[in-house]
Structures are given as structure tokens and as C-alpha cells.
Design a binder for these strands. Structure first.
Lengths: 161, 161
DNA sequence: AAAAATTTTGTTATATTATAACATAATAAT
DNA sequence: ATTATTATGTTATAATATAACAAAATTTTT
């Protein structure tokens, strides 16, 4: 397993094949260790999500899935996504109604996303310090108990500026 | 114009009538000063959004609007919302596909939202420091140029814990 | 004030995103 | 093997959002 993909897609040397392979390996391991059923459908949907770093909508995934499984219907994809999201294998991008793969589902984490509005790629930040801390502080100050965050940052990645 | 509503809905003494009246006054002023047309429909939709601090969906607003304007259709509401969002009179909550009023549309600002999952009320944070700064720093570190942020924090407000 | 240009609203249709509900099949537990 | 549980198949529909073109209202220009 390589570690080339760790920092996400906004990298000159991004090796996507290795990136996907790693992600799938990690998913298999995680499901095995947690006794989760990564069924054929779920696995295939995960692979389709990982086709790129541009978030995929449910219906884009459905279209691809149908190419190889003619009886696929919306629930087929949504159920798979429900499973994948629940177990952090995939994250939902709220502002896009779309989904991207997570390359570190095994570690509990709070996600932030950088969304490039030019190339449409999304990178997940693994910032358990700066942003996360700021959010907690602000919330605490107001007596608000945080359970969950959506942090989605739109703009231009380095390559697209 | 009172200032009682400044800190949002998670306050014991929240005076909602004053809160709405202030918001509508500010909206009128803003549109006047910027030469924007706060038409009858737009104004009414804004009032309906301000009916509460629970974000309203477009179709909830449509339903209410129809009670008094039978020929209202989805575009009627969506267009009004487009206008209101464009001019910061209303913010869209991405994770809820819903809309809430903004009480300080005149000041350019980046918004963060606290969403109480029990009472469903939403408060807008006016944090141009902590969270905002953290986001900028993280982005800068990665050479990412921020144009826009979605920060939506789910949890329990003080009253609901 | 009339004409032209622009903006807003009316209206119909449809696209996109997502879930409900119930049947069948596959897998796991007893 | 039987039972229970989980996953998938299938049909229908709910919920969210926009396209496209016509008519009306408003603003600008003449």
C-alpha cells in the first residue's frame, strides 16, 4: 500500500490508480475488522465514487451502475450510499448533493472540504485542530453542544488559480 | 428599531415580533439604498421566511404564499428566494435545503450557522474571527483561494440540552 | 407622453434528488 | 433445518429545483 494519495487530489504527483487501490483496500480491511458487509453492490458503488475526485451525484452513479447491472434503481444506489456514508467510507457534500470517497474511514474524524469551482475536484482536510477547534470554541461560548459539522469551502485550488 | 434580536433565537428574552420588524425595516432600507426592488412578492416571501427561526423550505413557503395568492407556483418562490439570497436578506442552509432570514444583510459577512437538532432553530454566528480565520489559514496553507464557505454546525442549543 | 428596453411575474412543463412500501432473496444465527 | 435478520428487487411517489416562453409591469429613452 502506497501513501502517495494521502494529501488528496490537489497534488502534482497524484497517482490516482494507487489512490483508488489504497482506498478499496482500506475499505475491505475496515469492513472485515468491524464485521460489516461490503457487498458486491456496495463495493461497486464505492469504486464508482472513487472514479475521480469530483463528487458524484447519486444519479450519476446510478447511470454508471446501470451500464453493468440493468436492474439498478435509485434505491440500489441510495442504500449503498447510506451504508458507505454511515461507515465513513464516503462523505456527502451537502452543497453539491454529491458524494466523494474518504481515504481514512478507519480514523474517527471531522471533515472539512475544499471544493474547487473550476476543476470541480474536492479535497478533504484532515484538520482536527484549527477549524475544528475554532468551531468548538465558538459553540462552547454560546452553550451549544456540537454533534456534527458541515464545513465546505468553495474556491480555486492552487492549480486552477 | 430595537436591538433585542441581535444575538439570535437562542436567547431567553427573544422578542420575535421586534426581531421581524427590525429585519423588515433593515430590508426596506437596504433595498432603497441599493436601488433594489423589494417587490410585493419578494417582501412577502421575506416575511414568511421570518415567521420563525426554523429554516423554511421553498415548498413550505409556497404553501403559505398560496394561501393568500392562489396562482403562486414554485418559480414564484424560487425567484423571490434567489433575489433574497443574492442580496443577503436570506441565507440558504445547505444541509437542510432551507432558508432563514439574515438580520444584518447590510454588512458584508461570512456566515456560520448553529442548527439545533431538537428545536430546529438556527442561529447565525457573526464570527469574522475565530472560525473564519481558521478556515482562511488552512486554505492558505494549501494554496487554495477561498471564495465562499458553508459552515453548518449541528447539535443542541443551550435550552434543549 | 409615447416608444423602446428592461425587469418581473405568470404559466406550463419537466428535471433532479430522494424515499416509502412491500416483495423476494441471501446471509447469519439458532 | 429452521428462524431471524439483513440486503436487494421493484414499483410508485415525494420533495426539491429549473427551463422556457408568454404576459405584465416598470424604467429608460426619445
Amino acid at each position: 500500500m502506497t501513501t502517495q494519495s494521502i494529501a488528496g487530489p490537489f497534488q502534482p504527483g497524484h497517482n490516482h490508480k494507487a489512490c483508488v487501490r489504497d482506498a478499496m483496500n482500506i475499505a475491505e480491511q475496515l469492513c472485515q475488522s468491524k464485521d460489516l458487509r461490503l457487498t458486491k453492490i456496495r463495493k461497486r458503488v464505492l469504486e464508482l465514487v472513487w472514479a475521480g475526485h469530483e463528487p458524484a451525484t447519486a444519479y450519476q452513479l446510478l447511470k454508471k451502475l446501470r451500464a453493468e447491472k440493468e436492474n439498478a434503481e435509485p434505491p440500489t444506489v441510495y442504500r449503498a450510499l447510506d451504508f458507505l456514508v454511515e461507515h465513513n467510507l464516503v462523505h456527502r457534500i451537502e452543497s453539491l448533493n454529491a458524494f466523494i470517497g474518504c481515504d481514512h474511514p478507519e480514523s474517527e474524524h471531522v471533515s472539512q472540504f475544499l471544493i474547487c469551482s473550476h476543476c470541480n475536484q474536492v479535497a478533504e482536510l484532515d484538520d482536527s485542530v484549527t477549524i475544528n477547534h475554532a468551531v468548538s470554541e465558538e459553540a462552547k461560548r454560546l452553550g451549544f453542544k456540537v454533534s456534527n459539522q458541515t464545513v465546505e469551502i468553495m474556491g480555486l485550488c492552487a492549480a486552477c488559480q
